[in-house]
């Protein structure tokens, strides 16, 4: 799905705009374990990181594996340093008020609906 769609599904606010809204996201990583992001991200460019960890290291980690979209959940406040790093790295930083379970559910449902309609 495009970043634009992702924003709509999650009712997300844009904290920093990095990459283009038409950019395609194919993989989703929901975690607070930064080493897991490093170990298990195959194609960062097409991955969105969804996390409750709202500190600067989230963005550093995302940047290390070329993740271009990060979604902070539960409407959490973010540190100024995180915004700085997002801007420097050209990462689109979004925030949604939904908790991570709801975010994962909404995205999963949307992907499955899309692929079900493609198979008709």
């Amino acid at each position: 799905m495009k970043i634009d769609e992702l924003k709509k599904i999650l009712n997300a606010e844009v904290l920093t705009k990095g990459i283009d809204d038409n950019h395609e996201i194919e993989n989703f990583c929901c975690t607070e374990l930064m080493s897991d992001v490093l170990a298990f991200t195959n194609d960062g460019e097409s991955t969105a990181l969804i996390t409750a960890l709202s500190n600067a290291q989230t963005l550093r980690t995302a940047d290390m594996v070329d993740i271009r979209v990060v979604v902070i959940v539960r409407g959490k406040q973010v540190e100024e340093k995180l915004i700085e790093i997002a801007e420097e790295s050209g990462i689109t930083l979004l925030r949604t008020k939904y908790p991570i379970f709801t975010v994962a559910g909404k995205l999963y449902q949307h992907i499955n609906m899309e692929s079900a309609s493609e198979h008709k």
Binding site: L33, D36, L38, T61
Partner: peptide
């Protein structure tokens, strides 16, 4: 609390 300490650091480096 920073998201580290999962015990994957050195194994990730080796990999």
């Amino acid at each position: 609390e920073m998201g580290f300490g999962a015990g994957m650091g050195l194994p990730n480096i080796k990999r």
